[in-house]
Amino acid sequence: MAVKHKSGLRSQLPFLLIALPGLLYLVINNYLPMFGMVIAFKKIDYAKGILSSPWVGLDNFKFLFQTSDAFIMIRNTVLYNLAFIVLGTVCAVFIAVLMAEVSKMFAARFFQAGLLLPNLVSMVIVAYLVYALLTPETGLINTSVLPALGLEPVNWYTESKYWPFILTITQLWKTAGYSSIVYIASIAGIDTGIYESARIDGAGKLRQIFHITLPMIKPTVIIMLLMSIGRIFASDFGLFSQVPMNSGALFNVTQTIDTYVYRGLMQYGNVGMSSAAGLFQSVVGFVLVITANYAVRRVNPENSLF
């Protein structure tokens, strides 16, 4: 047994060496910076440096919970992300199923490129695309669309009630095409024999989709879901700050943890508090992944991440 194990290690050595650069990268890029977590518990004194600055316990975390803002920003972050996760997954799977039915090579390439393009556009540009549509005096919606429908113009950047929809649509427009790639790939990996036998048994397109495609990509969907749940406390800064043009009147529906921390700390440059907010986000995200994974494992161990 022991001998076999040894030779096993020797034969695996080349593969381990291949993995080495990647592992090193992981350590240097993802683990070394974790040293910075200590900053969250310190009152940074630049003259003394990070290590000798005094410890302050949880003081840096207090500002997050100072006001009712804490509730608003956590609510916004979580609800938006839930909406993005659910709607995003539905849209992405829907697109993937449709794309799988496009058989002509040229058409498939064309649609794929078209779906990917929004994802390559920077959020700042997206913000101005939205702005071109919504700007009160010259925007397309107020000057052409609403009058054509006989509606009054809307001052979009001060009316918070529309923004949950605007943000969700923007986000889906930007990301759905990109996230569908994973599902397109996993649909492509399904054994075509299964579809053939289904056809012989008389199953139509819809039946094939509901009884073959969707069950076959279920594990992929679950993994993707778990991974996005881990980021449920993070938010796309560009989407929540740039797209609403940083408008104060919209903060009730656009404030997320990231934008709050940015707005609050830009002015004071307190790295301790910024780190505290980042750490808080990560810890909660970590707990959520573990919980979600545990829940999945209870239902279906095969589909869990670990």
Binding site: Q66, T67, R263, G264, Y268, N270, M273
Partner: peptide
């Protein structure tokens, strides 16, 4: 410092 940070967010909002 905590208050000032929270206040500057209120400022930006209104």
């Amino acid at each position: 410092v905590n208050e000032m940070t929270a206040l500057s967010n209120v400022y930006n909002q209104y």
